[in-house]
Amino acid sequence: MNAPVPLAITEEEFQKFRDFFYRKTGIHFEENKRYFVDKRLIDRILATNNTSFRNYFVMLRFETSGKELQQLINIMTVNETYFFREEYQFTCLVNSVLNEIVTRKRPSEPIRIWSLPSSSGEEPYSLAIYLLEYWPRVDDYAIELIASDIDTTMLEKARQGRYDQRSVAHLPPPLLRKYFTALYDGSYQINDDLRQSVDFTQVNLSDLAQMRAYRDFDVVFCRNLLIYFDDTSRRIAAETLFNALNPGGFICLGHSESMSRITPLFKVRKFPEAIIYQKPR
């Protein structure tokens, strides 16, 4: 009896899948990701009891629930976070966005920034550090940093503020020394002032009743979350984020995400450092 022929993805199949995945998610795989993509595709072909790419691809495109596409998105996207990830958006915040926001703020009015999903806290703490270090007008305004996640375990980890070497690897060494204490086990403890500066809350972005209370934000960082949602959930999330922003407020998505593909509610704003989205005034 012959052994079964191991599954392999041909060049044409890879191209076909790559085009499809890009249309669905905006995520484009370069040739150098071929091994990464092929391996995960084959895993899903086998897990769904298909015998070929072709059968699997037909199922993927026409499955009305979209569950398999969601599974695929989950394994094709690397869910990682670290300090100063996609730093160009923080640069855009301090060089362009905040200066525009304060033109319509009264001196006593706080600037409100929301980070979600905050995961283990790297993003909101990065925002705090970036503001303190790089926004010259930081002392002129009260700034509220709210960080939210659906996962209470992650929120607890964020509140503790203890990170491994990988998480802090992109921080400039002077900032690492200034805001962290190196611990004996090789991890880093963020300092208490920063821990106290971020308000962590648990939210479910799909829960309209809960989200109704989240309002008056000037900037929202919602990066690499919407790619995990199906079309309807993504649309609901976009409505929720629109409701949460002040008129003229800004929203930053992950580099592979596009609000324009979800809804016409937001304007695209091109700043020197980044393209982000704005709620019309």
Partner: peptide
């Protein structure tokens, strides 16, 4: 430090 924490987010 001008970053402030509110109890009502």
């Amino acid at each position: 430090m001008t970053l402030i924490k509110k109890h009502d987010a």
